[in-house]
Simulated assay, not measured.
Amino acid sequence: MDLVFDGRVFEWRGPAPYYFVAVPDEPSADIREVATRASYGWGVIPVEARIGGTAFTTSLFPKDGAYLLPVKNAVRLPEGLRTGDEVRVEMTVQLGR
Rank of each mutant, 00 (worst) to 15 (best):
E33Y: 00
A22R: 14
D25R: 11
A74Y: 08
P70F: 02
G84R: 12
W42C: 00
V4W: 09
P27V: 11
P24H: 12
F20S: 08
R76M: 06
G14W: 08
L81C: 04
T83P: 07
E11Q: 13
A66N: 12
L68Y: 07
F5Q: 08
G14S: 14
G53Q: 09
A55W: 01
S59P: 10
A22G: 13
V34L: 08
G52M: 01
K72M: 09
S59D: 02
T83K: 11
R88L: 12
A29E: 15
E33G: 05
I51S: 01
D64Y: 09
G14A: 14
P27S: 00
K72P: 08
I31A: 08
D6V: 14
Y19M: 03
G53V: 00
L81F: 07
K72H: 15
I31T: 02
F61E: 06
G84A: 04
E48P: 02
Y40I: 14
V89F: 05
L3P: 09
Y40E: 14
A38R: 03
V87G: 06
P27H: 13
R37L: 11
G43H: 03
T54K: 15
M1P: 05
E79K: 01
P78C: 03
T54F: 09
D85K: 04
F5H: 09
L95T: 00
R76Y: 03
F20Q: 04
G53A: 04
V75L: 10
Q94G: 00
P70K: 01
V93W: 05
F5A: 08
T83C: 01
A22V: 08
F10Y: 14
L68N: 10
M1K: 05
G84F: 02
G41M: 05
F20V: 08
L69Q: 08
V89H: 09
